[in-house]
Design a protein around this nucleic acid. Structure first.
Lengths: 156, 156
DNA sequence: TGGGTAAGTATGGGCGTCAATGGAATCGGC
DNA sequence: GCCGATTCCATTGACGCCCATACTTACCCA
């Protein structure tokens, strides 16, 4: 499996370190990135994390804009400036920065949520709330789409 | 990692020296440029800084204009004339010039903001204001571009 | 099938190294 | 000989690395 799947929640120790779930670690080593690339999400109190595949994705969204253009600067300030590359210690742990903990509202536990080419880092309670909301949205979506027999594209 | 990522803020000492963040220094040595190339930004009270990759970008933006044209002259006097190459001392510190400190409104602390091939130098408080604005602009930008499937977190 | 054992994970803490910072020392020119 | 600039050294604190321990899981064999 070379994708991040499933969710795990681990505890931070007194130094603010937390183990990356073993299943995710093995994906990361395959990916080849040195460390853990972390980028706060824009719309939730969460952090996108991953390796080269995530970095590639972020770079791609930047190359759509001219260097030195205003939009390019805004994007790089937000996406790159707010990102961090966390070191992974020999036991597979990372130390979350204060900025990340503040953004995600993390106390002494974190949950890791697999999302394919990346995963997210959440404060556990906030995540269940988000998950429940997401689930409701999906139900609703399905109710709207799934009524007719196999609509080609969701005309909305 | 061969790009400038994340943000750091350090203090100036009584001589006006400030440490370049270690993460950025390692990028600079890889880049091979001797010293730190600094170029005030046009639209903000900040300074673009970096090495060969930054210089290359600046040159590229100049070559879009006819040599000896008025526009070319304007650009080169601003971009090149206002630039400086700061010396880096053995501890990895630079002494900011008065011109730079004045342009950016820097007192006794500076913030370094990674932006990929370059980074920016800011007065910390001005930067947080700019960062918040940038974030809003990006949200808005993404709303316009990424409404369909394939927003930032789209499937690969 | 059940118990015992081995392996891998999550977690805790001690210690050395490096980075940021402050200040002294040295070299340069005027 | 004075002043600014550059280099050298010293301190402090954070961080990375190492080793130790508790648990869970997987596996093997009777």
């Amino acid at each position: 499996m070379d994708e991040f799947v499933s969710t795990f929640t681990n505890r931070l120790d007194s130094k603010g370190r937390v183990s990356i779930p073993a299943a995710f670690r093995s994906v990361l080593v395959r990916d080849g990135f040195e460390g853990l690339y972390c980028c706060p999400t824009l719309d939730q109190n969460a952090v996108d994390a991953g390796g080269n595949r995530l970095v590639t994705q972020i770079r791609a969204s930047l190359t759509r804009f001219e260097p030195f253009s205003e939009d390019h600067e805004f994007l790089s300030t937000t996406l790159i400036g707010e990102s961090e590359v966390l070191k992974v210690d020999p036991e597979g742990r990372v130390a979350l920065s204060e900025a990340i903990k503040a953004h995600a509202g993390i106390g002494d536990t974190v949950t890791f949520v697999g999302q394919g080419y990346k995963f997210q880092i959440w404060e556990p309670e906030r995540f269940v709330a988000y998950r429940d909301e997401a689930k409701n949205r999906v139900r609703e979506l399905r109710r709207r789409l799934g009524s007719g027999p196999r609509a080609t594209g969701g005309t909305e």
